[in-house]
Every structure is written in structure tokens, then in C-alpha cells.
């Protein structure tokens, strides 16, 4: 055996050093270690050698095999590290490519705003109540101190469901007051479990028989509020309304009460809020710096009495917030008809 391991390995080492890819390494591995490769050739020559040389040659072959394997492993690691370094260069990266487009669902803006208000009111101990869209004339009008032939019925533009006038599409969420009094307050008072003040809100869909345009709808959403307790006063009403506005606009908003006539409250008010959008008058407040926000008042003693609550003992306040209008104000929606259109181009904006 004349050749040293070095002389045998040197050409292979050079090949390994020159390898540029895992494929190159595999080729070298195949050509050196597989059948017909350098190591195999060395082993194949052994029988022709004189016996004294045979052990040394066998040893050489194994050493060579070990050296090749070690060389290949080292080269593989080197190539892997080089690849990582190349990746780290971030070649061809376009920082401006857009992200994958997500498909999104979403809540209806009316629901989103209603939920905010529900959360605000429930945090103050109000319960959220519900009532039917088709309501009896009794609940919608009579028990609310609006007898038949009352001129206040004019302002309500009522959809009537039958010629007898027994059922109507509720013209406001105020029958929610009637139901709350009859179904919650009266039973609690009778059972001795009444824990005043009773606080409730009733969000819902309401209907008016009127021609539609960008600012008028025959179907819209309101939220009634009702508080009943001992000595509930106009001061409490003002306090509750200021809290409501702080919740909606996130800051202190000046309010004012003006007399307003609604047969189910006495005294009745229109509540104006200082326009949150301007200081000197804008299109939203019609240049008055006040926005007419909601009707409210102290519950009329007749309503309490009609529902079985003694007005000498209990008093309350009620308000009716226009949810549709509030949503339009909040998002700057200029056409009320979009709210119930089911148009995805509208819904997808929220």
C-alpha cells in the first residue's frame, strides 16, 4: 500500500469543498461510497494484493470511508448555514405587498349601537325588556292615556291591523312601559319583593304610516326607558340623560329640557343636547347648536294607575330614544332607508 489516506482523500475533499448543493453532496456520496465508488474500488482490489498488504489496505478503505462521511456531513452543515444566511438577506422582499384579504362578518350598526346602550344601562341596573311588534290598541294607546279620538293619535300615523282597531303595529316603544309596569312592577309590589327604583329599557322596531324618503321611514328603531320608584323627579331624569350622553359621546354634553306634549308623561319634555359636532351651528343641528334628541317626562299618573301602580306612592320617568336617528348621527348616514335595505355595500362598512 503506497498511497496514504491523504493522497486518497485529497481529490474527494476538493470535490466536497466545491459542492454547491445537497444534490452535489449526494452525487459525491454515491460516486465515492456506493458500488463502483472509490472506497469500493479500494476494497475490490484487496484480493489481488499480497497478503501482507491486505490488512493495511482494508484499514485505509475504512478510514477513507470515515473521512468522506465526515466531510460530507460537515459540508452539509456548511451548506445549510449558508442557506440560512441567504434567507436572512431577504432578497426580493416587497414590503408593500398587501396582506391576504380576510372575509369578515359584522354586526348591523343598529345592533352595535343598541348593544352599547344596553351595556351602559345594564351596568346601572336596568333590565332589558322586549315587546311585540303587533301590539294591542290598548297597550299602544289607551293605557298610555291616549283614548280613542285623541288628537295625539294623529301625530302617530298608525298602521292599523284590523278594522275594529284592536291591533296596531306599535307606533313607539312606549307600550314597553305598560308591559314593564304590568308584568314586572305590579307583581313585585304585590309580592313584597319590589326593590325600587325599577329600571328598564325596551329597544325595538316601531312603525309609522308615512311616506318614506331619505329622512323618513315607516319602520325604524327606538329605545324606551322607564324608571319607577319613590320620589323619582325631573332631576333624576336629567341625571339619567346626562349619563346616557356621557356614555354615547364619551364626554360631558350639556342638555336642556323644553316642554313637549306626550299624553303618557306629565310634565313632558323634549330633551335637547348641545350639538356634539360643532360650536357655532352646523348642518346636523340645523345651525341651532342644539340637537333635539329625545322626548321624555315623568310618567303620567293615569298611566301608572291604568297599569295598577298607585301614583300617590310611586312616581317615575320615561324616555324614548330614536335609535335609528342616533345611528345615523353616529356614523354620518344620510339616508335612513339604508338601515333596513340588506345591502351588503352598506353592511360591509361596519
Amino acid at each position: 500500500m503506497t498511497e496514504t489516506l491523504e493522497s486518497l482523500f485529497e481529490p474527494i475533499r476538493l470535490r466536497i469543498a466545491a459542492a454547491e448543493s445537497d444534490d452535489d453532496l449526494r452525487r459525491i456520496e454515491r460516486e465515492t461510497l456506493d458500488k463502483g465508488g472509490a472506497v469500493a474500488a479500494l476494497l475490490a482490489g484487496i484480493p489481488t494484493l499480497p497478503p501482507t498488504e491486505r490488512p493495511l489496505t482494508g484499514k485505509r478503505a475504512n478510514e477513507l470511508k470515515g473521512a468522506i462521511q465526515a466531510g460530507l456531513a460537515e459540508a452539509k452543515e456548511r451548506l445549510a448555514l449558508r442557506a440560512v444566511e441567504r434567507e436572512r438577506l431577504g432578497e426580493g422582499f416587497d414590503a408593500t405587498l398587501p396582506g391576504a384579504r380576510p372575509t369578515r362578518g359584522g354586526l348591523h350598526p343598529l345592533v352595535a349601537v343598541t348593544r352599547e346602550l344596553e351595556d351602559l344601562f345594564t351596568s346601572m341596573g336596568y333590565v332589558v325588556l322586549d315587546g311585540p311588534e303587533i301590539e294591542s290598541d290598548e297597550n299602544n294607546f289607551q293605557l298610555l292615556n291616549i283614548p280613542p279620538d285623541h288628537p295625539a293619535r294623529d301625530a302617530q300615523d298608525t298602521f292599523r291591523c284590523d278594522a275594529d282597531g284592536k291591533f296596531v303595529l306599535r307606533t313607539h316603544t312606549s307600550p314597553g312601559q305598560v308591559r314593564a309596569l304590568k308584568e314586572r312592577v305590579v307583581p313585585a309590589i304585590r309580592a313584597g319583593t319590589f326593590a325600587p327604583p325599577f329600571r328598564a329599557i325596551v329597544p325595538g322596531k316601531v312603525f309609522r304610516q308615512e311616506t318614506t324618503d331619505a329622512s323618513h321611514e315607516h319602520t325604524f328603531h327606538q329605545m324606551e326607558g322607564l324608571v319607577v320608584g319613590k320620589d323619582i323627579s325631573v332631576g333624576h331624569l336629567i341625571g339619567a340623560m346626562k349619563t346616557l350622553l356621557r356614555g354615547v359621546f364619551g364626554r360631558e354634553i350639556e342638555v336642556r329640557l323644553r316642554p313637549g306634549y306626550f299624553p303618557f308623561v306629565e310634565p313632558g319634555f323634549e330633551l335637547d343636547a348641545r350639538c356634539p359636532f360643532c360650536k357655532e351651528g352646523c348642518s346636523v343641528c340645523k345651525r341651532s347648536t342644539w340637537i333635539e334628541l329625545l322626548p321624555c317626562g315623568l310618567v303620567h299618573p293615569n298611566v301608572l294607575r291604568n297599569c295598577g301602580v298607585d301614583p300617590e306612592v310611586w312616581s317615575g320617568f320615561a324616555f324614548g330614544l330614536g335609535l335609528s336617528r342616533l345611528v345615523m348621527l353616529r356614523y354620518g348616514i344620510d339616508d335612513v332607508r339604508l338601515l333596513l335595505s340588506g345591502d351588503l355595500r352598506f353592511l360591509e362598512q361596519f
Binding site: M124, G125, A195, P196, P197, R199, V227, G229, I232, S233, V234, G235, H236, I238, G239, A240, K242, R256, L257, R258, P259, E266, P267, G268, F269, L298, H300, P301, N302, P311
Partner: peptide
Amino acid sequence: IEQDLVEEVGRIFRYGNVPEARLEGSL
């Protein structure tokens, strides 16, 4: 009724002169 007169007094007194009050009750 009596409450109608509450309104008569209130509207001339002006509701703006009524201080804001907080509801009080059980928690």
C-alpha cells in the same frame, strides 16, 4: 290633575334650574 300644575310651575320656573340628581337604590 295636580301633576298638570307641577308642569305649570316647572315650565315657568324653568327645568334648567333643576339640579341633576342620581338614582339611589339597592345594588
